[in-house]
Design a binder for these strands. Structure first.
Lengths: 241, 241
DNA sequence: TGTACATCAGTGAACGCGCGTTCACTGATGTAC
DNA sequence: TGTACATCAGTGAACGCGCGTTCACTGATGTAC
């Protein structure tokens, strides 16, 4: 956003280092987007964008990984907030889950580089044994989804283990985002909205259905005609607004 | 696999360059796995593993990207083959789709680095305008899924646009794999198999259900109690083996 | 009120590394005459 | 049958680049006396 020109920078007073830290984070995120990922991000470019020399960044972050990590932490908070907004704005817990899913997808499509940074990185980016601040932000985000699923269970819309269901729902929306922003070398859906609506409805209703099936049941093979006939009946019951 | 020791290499005769090309590809894939991705792959390491000097690789591949691309091409073929095996071995088209999905997930979990290379790369890796050999291999893989969906449509199990449905199903299994191999900083499912079974059943049955709903219908908000009651009836119809 | 000092944000120059890639070459082979 | 030659897989040394990071420094500020 704030394209600070490389004007001669006024030196911050002692104790005011946080201001520059803030500017560095903003510039880093912006350049992350331009570079398409952390591999393409350069400390030199961050320093230049802020209007400062490169070693100066080391007053605020011990190394490049920490800088990127700090950006990620901030993005996690934004993602969590946009989902929790959906939770707050819905009375019905199933509807809340659906809107949160949409918020999640929208966030991913609007911030593909950041999304990739949070959720599509190669390995477990652990620096040491215990969870980092970034891990905790991610965990908080996941927990809020588990809570929302739990409300559906309490309301009788879903059944079963909330954490497993949350993982399943997350995997589906993550698959949608991931597929759309990674542009694998085969055709992108002609109608992205139709694709998203279809997938999210199928997952939502399918989860409601499957969570009602006896838990450790053997997997169904073919779908019998009686089942298909009842599916047709069921479709007629759903309200169309 | 074939850990060729750095023994003094016998020079191939003119016209036999393909042998070394084959060895290079094998070594490259192995080192790709060890390095965790193409960013960590080094031409020097490939050459060393094969037992040859680095510039020698340039007799077989114009640059590093081409070498990685050639590995990808091969992996696409393996993935396609493992899914088509599932298609061939099933009479019932819905069951075929389910088994293909399982084969897909299994492939991804067993070859995480390669999977990431094929389906989780940053941008459209187009060198020029027209599709590369890798693009065509990916397209062939996707087409085979569309065909399988089409069989389900013909059999009356699914309804609607096969390509949209294929995208939707692919997104779901891709989400599962992607989530499991990327290890985002929140808890991995306690029981991976239960998670996978649940997700794939929900998607399969949900897709069968939603494909029966009037196509461009408004989205359902809350699930009415009548719908939930019928879901219970429906669950009783499904055969358990 | 003036002065010496500690603090610390930011500087300028450079190090050292590993990488992809290039270049002129070598030498064993199959082939044409 | 012998000889000159074209072919081409592989070599050895090096280039040049951009990167993260380090180091000794500078100089404006607030504060203690």
């Amino acid at each position: 956003m704030t394209t600070t020109p490389p004007s001669p920078r006024v030196r911050a007073n002692p104790g005011q280092g946080l201001l520059l830290r803030e500017e560095i984070l903003l510039a880093a995120e912006q350049l992350l987007i331009e570079a398409g990922g952390d591999a393409g991000l350069t400390l030199r470019s961050v320093a230049q964008r802020v209007g400062v020399t490169t070693p100066s960044l080391y007053r605020h972050f011990p190394d490049k990984a920490s800088l990127v990590g700090a950006v990620c932490l901030r993005v996690w908070d934004e993602l969590t907030e946009s989902m929790q907004r959906a939770f707050r704005q819905n009375q019905d817990p199933f509807q809340a889950l659906r809107d949160a899913g949409r918020a999640y997808v929208q966030f991913g499509l609007e911030h593909p580089v950041q999304y990739r940074l949070l959720l599509m990185r190669p390995g477990p980016q652990t620096t040491d044994g215990r969870p980092s601040a970034q891990d905790e932000a991610a965990l908080a985000c996941f927990r809020s989804v588990v809570d929302a699923v739990n409300h559906c269970v309490t309301a009788g819309v879903l059944r079963g283990d909330p954490e497993t269901i949350a993982h399943s729902l997350w995997a589906t929306v993550h698959g949608c985002v991931s597929m759309l922003i990674s542009m694998p070398p085969f055709p992108v859906p002609r109608d992205v909205d139709a694709f998203l609506d279809f997938t999210m409805r199928a997952t939502g209703l399918g989860t409601a259905l499957v969570s009602r099936l006896p838990a450790p049941t053997a997997t169904e093979s073919a779908l019998p005609s009686e089942f298909l006939a009842r599916l047709d009946d069921l479709a007629a019951v759903l309200p169309s607004e």
